[in-house]
Design a protein around this nucleic acid. Sequence first.
DNA 1: TTTTTCTCGATAAATTTTTCCCGATAAGAG
DNA 2: CTCTTATCGGGAAAAATTTATCGAGAAAAA
Lengths: 222, 222
Amino acid sequence: MEKKLVHVPEPTLRRLPIYYHYLKSVLATGREAISCTHIGNDLNLDPPQIRKDLAYTGIRGLPKVGYQIEALLNSLETFFGWNRIDEAFLAGVGNIGKALLKYDGFQRYGFKIVAAFDNDPAMIGQSFCDVKVLHIDKLPNLCSRMKIRIGVIATPDSVAQRVADQMIEGGIKGIWNFAPASIKAPEGIIVQNENLAAGLAVLSKKLQLLMQSGKFRQEVVK
Amino acid sequence: MEKKLVHVPEPTLRRLPIYYHYLKSVLATGREAISCTHIGNDLNLDPPQIRKDLAYTGIRGLPKVGYQIEALLNSLETFFGWNRIDEAFLAGVGNIGKALLKYDGFQRYGFKIVAAFDNDPAMIGQSFCDVKVLHIDKLPNLCSRMKIRIGVIATPDSVAQRVADQMIEGGIKGIWNFAPASIKAPEGIIVQNENLAAGLAVLSKKLQLLMQSGKFRQEVVK
DNA sequence: TTTTTCTCGATAAATTTTTCCCGATAAGAG
DNA sequence: CTCTTATCGGGAAAAATTTATCGAGAAAAA
């Protein structure tokens, strides 16, 4: 078996967009260069870790100066391929689906929903943020015609698997799944599960521990 | 310094709700017991890992049989404290905020938004899902009066920190942050950052690697 | 009753990820 | 020009997490 060209740890992948967002805002202040120490201070992260994360994108810093912010942003954009927009289909125009449609910040991350699908007749034909809602059965066909690679699932559990199958049938290679159900897909299809309950669970457990360990004792919890 | 009573790995914490959700649906089919092998098969996870995760909640299985589903669900509920509802305040009634309000699945996780806050005069006074929108400046006071421990931030970046400060002022101990900004909080306050861009970044990078490694070569990507 | 099979729990190994340390280099001060 | 200070890069050490292994116990079958 062949090794991946460059394996980047998933935790690193998750942190990089945070840096990106932060750097954008720093750049807007007119600053040109920034050090890991500085970033770490603002973002509450360890400088060495940031340095290591950034190194994966291929950028290099300068001692005593840090990184050129603009170059760093470019490096991140190239690394993730955010330069060109990846078009995606959305299935399920419920609350989460609508929120995703309305959220215009994704373009920055090379991601754009170009069509939405639902099985509710009342929804079909409507438009949200210039994205039209079509019947779900049209998805596979349109998918392959438009060569869409990414599908977003924001349906109830019960139909998530069926929708995923339709997406895969249409040639979709990556599924961003917001349904709290685990989706089965053949190898070669990437499924990224987004699970709100996970974050909530982590928060509530940490909170529980905090309370247990004495109401007024302070505890370091990263 | 004192050690935490039981340290549970964060990845485990994130997986547990997935099991919970899954087990609920299995229980609904009438089944009474289930093995890790079975769960792993349905959820695409390794049985030993599941066993280890579940062990943290204190439950014990039986050879040849597995776990009693009902007992296991109880164990998870107790573990997370989902038995009693934790009331929370929401700041920012935009798209994400509304989606969170409308999503009724949180009650299951011992979590309920009881009031919403915004600074937009047009919003104030409105109700969403029986939750009234109040002016943000009323938050700190109401917080301490109602002894709210959890705050959800779904505002734009620009005001996230200010809102967080108001929450902390009101005595909130845990912040669930959906704004793509990192929030600074004193020690003793838990901040759980929810970052949609992170999941998207992971997905797009994996997809990129998949495509690079040959269109038709299959690759194992967990 | 005995044997077989399945699945658990505990321990150990491997892997991944984070943290630490140290020499090197660039900027600025004296 | 030399010294001090900040910050990087690389490699090593430590910690956390995942994966694998093995013996034991319970149910079912012979």
